[in-house]
Protein backbone atom coordinates (compact mmCIF):
# COMPACT_ATOMS: atom_id res chain seq x y z
CA UNK A 1 0.00 0.00 0.00
CA UNK A 2 1.61 3.19 -1.18
CA UNK A 3 1.13 5.78 1.53
CA UNK A 4 4.02 8.05 0.55
CA UNK A 5 3.63 11.21 -1.42
CA UNK A 6 4.52 11.01 -5.08
CA UNK A 7 4.47 14.26 -6.96
CA UNK A 8 5.01 12.92 -10.47
CA UNK A 9 4.32 15.37 -13.24
CA UNK A 10 2.25 14.45 -16.25
CA UNK A 11 3.13 15.77 -19.64
CA UNK A 12 -0.25 17.31 -20.21
CA UNK A 13 -1.37 20.03 -17.88
CA UNK A 14 -4.73 19.74 -16.19
CA UNK A 15 -7.83 21.00 -17.92
CA UNK A 16 -8.36 23.59 -15.19
CA UNK A 17 -7.02 26.76 -16.77
CA UNK A 18 -9.00 29.13 -14.57
CA UNK A 19 -7.49 31.31 -11.88
CA UNK A 20 -6.33 29.52 -8.76
CA UNK A 21 -8.84 31.03 -6.34
CA UNK A 22 -11.85 30.48 -8.60
CA UNK A 23 -10.67 27.00 -9.53
CA UNK A 24 -10.12 26.10 -5.89
CA UNK A 25 -13.53 27.30 -4.77
CA UNK A 26 -15.32 25.55 -7.64
CA UNK A 27 -13.31 22.39 -7.11
CA UNK A 28 -13.95 22.36 -3.39
CA UNK A 29 -17.69 22.69 -3.89
CA UNK A 30 -17.65 19.99 -6.54
CA UNK A 31 -15.51 17.71 -4.41
CA UNK A 32 -17.75 18.02 -1.37
CA UNK A 33 -20.83 17.42 -3.52
CA UNK A 34 -19.27 14.38 -5.20
CA UNK A 35 -18.11 13.00 -1.86
CA UNK A 36 -21.64 13.32 -0.48
CA UNK A 37 -22.97 11.52 -3.55
CA UNK A 38 -20.42 8.76 -3.07
CA UNK A 39 -21.20 8.46 0.62
CA UNK A 40 -24.90 8.05 -0.14
CA UNK A 41 -24.07 5.02 -2.30
CA UNK A 42 -22.16 3.23 0.44
CA UNK A 43 -24.04 0.71 2.59
CA UNK A 44 -22.32 1.77 5.82
CA UNK A 45 -22.87 5.48 5.33
CA UNK A 46 -25.64 5.63 7.92
CA UNK A 47 -23.54 4.04 10.63
CA UNK A 48 -20.66 6.47 10.19
CA UNK A 49 -21.83 10.05 10.42
CA UNK A 50 -19.68 12.88 11.59
CA UNK A 51 -15.97 13.44 11.74
CA UNK A 52 -13.69 16.08 10.33
CA UNK A 53 -13.97 17.18 6.72
CA UNK A 54 -10.59 15.86 5.63
CA UNK A 55 -10.97 12.71 7.69
CA UNK A 56 -14.42 12.28 6.22
CA UNK A 57 -13.01 12.48 2.70
CA UNK A 58 -10.34 9.88 3.38
CA UNK A 59 -12.86 7.62 5.08
CA UNK A 60 -15.35 7.93 2.23
CA UNK A 61 -12.65 6.95 -0.25
CA UNK A 62 -11.54 4.04 1.90
CA UNK A 63 -15.10 2.78 2.31
CA UNK A 64 -15.65 3.20 -1.43
CA UNK A 65 -12.57 1.10 -2.21
CA UNK A 66 -13.75 -1.62 0.16
CA UNK A 67 -17.26 -1.52 -1.28
CA UNK A 68 -16.02 -1.80 -4.89
CA UNK A 69 -13.76 -4.71 -3.95
CA UNK A 70 -16.65 -6.48 -2.24
CA UNK A 71 -18.85 -5.93 -5.30
CA UNK A 72 -16.08 -7.31 -7.53
CA UNK A 73 -15.88 -10.37 -5.27
CA UNK A 74 -19.65 -10.80 -5.45
CA UNK A 75 -19.52 -10.70 -9.25
CA UNK A 76 -16.87 -13.45 -9.17
CA UNK A 77 -18.88 -15.61 -6.77
CA UNK A 78 -22.16 -15.09 -8.59
CA UNK A 79 -20.48 -15.89 -11.92
CA UNK A 80 -19.37 -19.26 -10.57
CA UNK A 81 -22.81 -19.93 -9.10
CA UNK A 82 -24.54 -19.00 -12.35
CA UNK A 83 -22.17 -21.25 -14.31
CA UNK A 84 -23.09 -24.18 -12.08
CA UNK A 85 -26.80 -23.45 -12.29
CA UNK A 86 -26.73 -23.10 -16.07
CA UNK A 87 -25.14 -26.55 -16.34
CA UNK A 88 -27.80 -28.25 -14.24
CA UNK A 89 -31.02 -26.27 -14.50
CA UNK A 90 -33.63 -26.46 -17.23
CA UNK A 91 -35.58 -23.28 -17.73
CA UNK A 92 -39.21 -23.85 -16.76
CA UNK A 93 -42.16 -21.78 -17.82
CA UNK A 94 -42.20 -19.86 -14.54
CA UNK A 95 -38.54 -19.02 -14.88
CA UNK A 96 -39.04 -17.92 -18.47
CA UNK A 97 -41.87 -15.67 -17.32
CA UNK A 98 -39.64 -14.05 -14.71
CA UNK A 99 -36.90 -13.57 -17.28
CA UNK A 100 -39.43 -11.99 -19.60
CA UNK A 101 -40.51 -9.68 -16.80
CA UNK A 102 -36.89 -8.66 -16.30
CA UNK A 103 -36.69 -7.66 -19.94
CA UNK A 104 -40.06 -5.88 -20.07
Amino acid sequence: MSSGRRSSRTRRAGSSSLSSSTSRSISEDQISELLSKLQALLPESQARNGGAHRGSAARVLQDTCSYIRSLHQEVDNLSETLAELLASADVTSDQAAVIRSLLM
Binding site: S2, S3, R5, R6, S7, S8, R9, T10, G14, R24, S27, E28, I31, R54, A57, A58, L61, Q62, C65
Partner: peptide, 10 residues
Protein backbone atom coordinates in the same frame (compact mmCIF):
# COMPACT_ATOMS: atom_id res chain seq x y z
CA UNK B 1 -1.49 13.25 -11.96
CA UNK B 2 -0.11 15.62 -9.33
CA UNK B 3 -2.19 15.33 -6.18
CA UNK B 4 -4.73 18.07 -5.77
CA UNK B 5 -4.93 20.12 -2.61
CA UNK B 6 -6.97 18.23 -0.04
CA UNK B 7 -6.94 15.00 -2.03
CA UNK B 8 -6.49 11.97 0.24
CA UNK B 9 -3.84 9.35 -0.47
CA UNK B 10 -6.62 6.78 -0.78
Amino acid sequence: PPRQAGEPAR
